[in-house]
Simulated assay, not measured.
Amino acid sequence: ADRTLVLVLTGVVLGALAGAITSLLKILADPYDQLPAITFWLLGSLSGMHMAQVWVVAPVVLVGCSVLYLLRWRLNVLSLPEAEASALGVQVKPLRIAVIALATIMTSAVVAVAGVIGWIGLLIPHAARLLVGPSLARLLPMSIVMGALFLLLVDTASRSAGDLEIPLGILTALVGAPFFLGLLLRRAGASS
């Protein structure tokens, strides 16, 4: 419990620090040129994307997804307690570090060009798991396909909702937050 509390408090502190730095950058930015670009990037959009950016990011994502797929059986074993996973021959700590590093590199590459589009990485794997189960042999490809389709639908909705393009981060939060609230309520109902 103490480690969980420290982890949560560390997340809160780092989030507050990052928020303060972001606010400082917004205050120091040119209000006519840089500030709108910063704000739009923070809310996420595909409107400024060019194929050159896609070709830069695609190899990073393809390599990362390929490595994760090749590690799928080891990642399935990580759902077991650490002692059992180790008994099955999985080196738990190095594998966790590798997976976190891969996910961080892929996410950073995509966020660098498209901005912050939240909730997809939380929403889609849970929805895919409901459809195909927990095995990563099916879950990883389904998450990739569902994530791409979801982003396409959200981008289409953001561009066709009216005269003003709604940033994708806003729409994904409007879908993701109620979905997770439903999952939490479902889990609370099942445990009581």
Rank of each mutant, 00 (worst) to 15 (best):
P59D: 13
M142N: 02
T156H: 15
V54D: 12
T107K: 14
D33Q: 07
L171D: 02
A190W: 02
L88P: 03
L181N: 00
L122T: 13
G162R: 08
A85W: 00
R3M: 10
A101Y: 07
G89P: 09
E84P: 00
Q91A: 11
L78F: 07
P125L: 04
L183G: 04
A128I: 07
V12H: 05
A148Y: 12
F150C: 01
S143D: 03
L14G: 01
D30A: 09
S192C: 10
G133Y: 11
L35W: 08
P81K: 13
T156G: 05
G147P: 02
A188I: 13
V90G: 02
L174F: 15
G44Q: 02
A37F: 11
L153K: 07
T172E: 03
S86Q: 13
F180Y: 12
L136D: 01
R96E: 15
L168R: 04
L183H: 04
L80P: 03
R138M: 10
G118E: 01
F40M: 12
L139Y: 04
L42V: 09
P178L: 10
P134T: 06
G147L: 05
A16F: 14
G162S: 08
V92A: 05
I21L: 14
T4S: 07
G48P: 02
R186V: 09
I166H: 03
V61C: 04
Q53I: 06
P94V: 06
L75D: 15
W119C: 00
A87D: 06
S192D: 06
G64A: 11
L9I: 04
W73P: 02
V57I: 15
P59N: 14
L25P: 00
W119S: 01
R129Q: 13
G162V: 11
A148R: 07
E165H: 10
T172L: 00
F150Q: 01
I97G: 07
P59V: 14
A190E: 11
P167L: 05
A128S: 15
I105G: 07
V67I: 15
A101G: 05
A98Y: 04
F179C: 01
S135H: 09
L70I: 08
L25S: 02
L130Y: 11
R186Q: 14
S79M: 10
S23F: 06
V113T: 12
A16I: 12
H50R: 09
A114C: 15
A127L: 12
D163M: 15
M51D: 15
A37N: 06
G44R: 01
V54G: 15
I124Y: 03
A114T: 10
G147Q: 07
P167T: 03
I166R: 04
A20P: 06
D155F: 00
L5K: 03
L71T: 10
L130E: 11
M142F: 09
V110R: 00
T156I: 08
L152Q: 13
A37D: 07
I105K: 06
P167R: 02
